[in-house]
Design a protein around this nucleic acid. Sequence first.
DNA 1: CTCAATGCAAATCTTTTGCATGCTA
DNA 2: TAGCATGCAAAAGATTTGCATTGAG
Lengths: 163, 163
Amino acid sequence: MPGRFGRCRQKKNDALGCCFRGDGRRMTAAREAIIAVLEKSSEHLSAEDVYVKVHRIYPRIGLTTVYRNLEFLTDSNVLAKCDFGDGRARYELIRTANGEKEHHHHLVCTTCGRVINYSEFIDEELQFLKRAEKGLSKKYDFQIADHLIQFYGTCQTCAGSKK
Amino acid sequence: MPGRFGRCRQKKNDALGCCFRGDGRRMTAAREAIIAVLEKSSEHLSAEDVYVKVHRIYPRIGLTTVYRNLEFLTDSNVLAKCDFGDGRARYELIRTANGEKEHHHHLVCTTCGRVINYSEFIDEELQFLKRAEKGLSKKYDFQIADHLIQFYGTCQTCAGSKK
DNA sequence: CTCAATGCAAATCTTTTGCATGCTA
DNA sequence: TAGCATGCAAAAGATTTGCATTGAG
């Protein structure tokens, strides 16, 4: 019996496949499995994390393939590569199952490393960003394509245990 | 003749020394030289960059010492550690010669890697940040201590050469 | 004189690359 | 069937660590 990811029959994540198919790029069992793992996880996973989890459902995968696909899926705008300062890249899905794009920022606890996603200020951010981008691109003749906003501090739990 | 940093006589950067002296920590020739190099540079230097430059004025220094001091000076709030996505950490001085703290954000060219410092939108940013911080810390019970704002895009030169 | 700081060599850890083989479209 | 994708082993880089020695205060 060819397993869930054995021969890449089911194409469960084909919705995301359209983010990259069409350049001769292909949906593969490995990509499907990586996306499935990231869909299920609420955490921000490192390459190693992804490798371990994918390995459970698709044992023949190699770490190199994980790295290559994380890069590929990031370039294809399916994933976002994050840096929370712990010396390894972490990844998150930025598409819903339908293929819609999501956007949020992060609160990073500098004590325990926990990361909280938030999106409630996105509207205000948008206003601020628009103005900033306009001013900055004018002043420095710089075409802004993207931004990074992140807050650092102490989460509830860590603050509690310090008292 | 004992050189400029030969025996750590002159203590030129003693103003910054007070950022960390007092815990039994010391101002050394290596630290003085590293600070001097970062003071002179308008670029954001990697550990290797710092090592090469310091080596010219203080040849006996080792790369390990550079790493250790960059970390130490960052912890002491003399430097800021930056990540512009090129796989190595970069550092910048966040104190003036008087010891005052400076604050700015970065425009990062994703084509050539150039980094532009800016601080002119700090006012608007400050407003946005204040509101966001207030709302977020309340909602998530998270004590915000710091933030990171960075813009990515294409600088003048790179945009020009693409046309 | 004490203990923080340093230098060197070796170790670690994450990420990348070369190459032969497998598999999608 | 063509060429993208994969796996393995090895390489590459950045950063860290152990340990004996040096030097700031």
